[in-house]
């Protein structure tokens, strides 16, 4: 009974004129009935593709995809946060660099000699001694190893981090 109806539907299925509910039934019967499958493929070879599998994919690959996507999202989020915070600091730093370099150039032109550079070098040494050492943290995230380097101890949000892939061949 069903097989007779199925065979009558082949033409309509191929012409895309079959109502969706009947189409669904046709595809199910095509998979389940070997006799009808045989005759349908003889009539229309392209029906072979209607029997494509519904395999959901390997769990390991799905998990790897999720880890990669979320890792990238976190990285993008951190980068955008760093970008936003870095802007005013960069502007001040650029201005300071311009003033210092301009001053050095002016002093060199006016005063000359290596003695004029000494105070600048000393000031830089003092600043280095006063600033706290950069904070580094290592975090295990799944198979990844993340190395964070924070700008300073007081700010736990501003950091540059590196993701080390253990599978990477050096």
């Amino acid at each position: 009974m069903n097989c007779g109806i199925f065979r009558e539907m082949i033409g309509s299925y191929v012409d895309e004129t079959l109502e969706e509910g009947r189409r669904h039934w046709f595809r199910t019967h095509l998979r389940e009935c070997p006799t009808c499958r045989e005759s349908a493929l003889r009539e229309e070879p392209s029906l072979l593709f209607a029997m494509a599998p519904a395999a959901p994919g390997e769990p390991e690959e799905i998990e790897a995809c999720a880890v990669a996507v979320m890792g990238r999202i976190r990285q993008d989020r951190l980068e955008s946060r760093l970008h936003r915070r870095r802007r005013p600091w960069l502007a001040v730093a650029a201005a300071a660099a311009l003033v210092i370099s301009g001053g050095i150039a002016w002093r060199t032109m006016v005063g000359g000699g290596s003695g004029t550079l000494q105070p600048v070098v000393e000031a830089r040494r003092d600043a280095e001694l006063q600033s706290s050492p950069p904070t580094v943290e290592v975090e295990m995230a799944g198979e990844e190893v993340r190395v964070y380097q924070f700008a300073n101890e007081a700010d736990s949000d501003t950091a540059v981090y590196f993701i080390v892939d253990p599978a990477l061949e050096l």
């Binding site: 045989e38 072979l48 593709f49």
Partner: peptide, 16 residues
């Protein structure tokens, strides 16, 4: 064998 009997799932993807 007949084509219908041979047409398994992996085969469909391979042909496509």
């Amino acid at each position: 064998e007949g084509a219908g009997a041979r047409a398994d799932s992996n085969e469909t993807d391979n042909v496509l």
